[in-house]
């Protein structure tokens, strides 16, 4: 584990992947809202069902999401700089946090 960052209600943990890529785990205190997939799918490929889906942005990242477990893992592409990998993870966490705030408890 390299770093823990809080983005609102979302905890982002940066994990060592290899010299060119870290992995980012996103966790929240309650299940991710169902609207999350719709939001993430804009301009990106996705596959899987409602309990487990994968969002893929070529040249950027793959995000595997277990919404009911309130957990996701981002694996950035190796070609992306480490700093932009971090920015992308925080941006995704921001989207999750925003939707959590909007969603009824």
């Amino acid at each position: 584990m390299l770093e823990v960052i809080q983005v609102g209600a979302v905890t982002v943990t940066r994990l060592y992947g290899c010299t060119r890529r870290d992995q980012y785990e996103l966790r929240a205190p309650r299940p991710f809202p169902s609207q999350l997939r719709d939001r993430l799918e804009v301009g990106r490929a996705s596959r899987g069902g409602p309990d487990l889906y994968v969002i893929d942005e070529p040249g950027a990242f793959q995000l595997t999401v277990a919404p009911k477990s309130a957990r996701a893992l981002m694996m950035p592409r190796l070609t992306t700089p480490l700093e932009s990998q971090r920015d992308t993870a925080l941006s995704l966490a921001g989207i999750v946090d925003e939707l959590l705030l909007e969603a009824p408890r």
Partner: peptide
């Protein structure tokens, strides 16, 4: 190959 599995895997595991 820009990112070969064995090379990437070796770097990740053994350096």
């Amino acid at each position: 190959i820009e990112r070969a599995h064995y090379a990437v895997g070796w770097l990740a595991k053994f350096g």
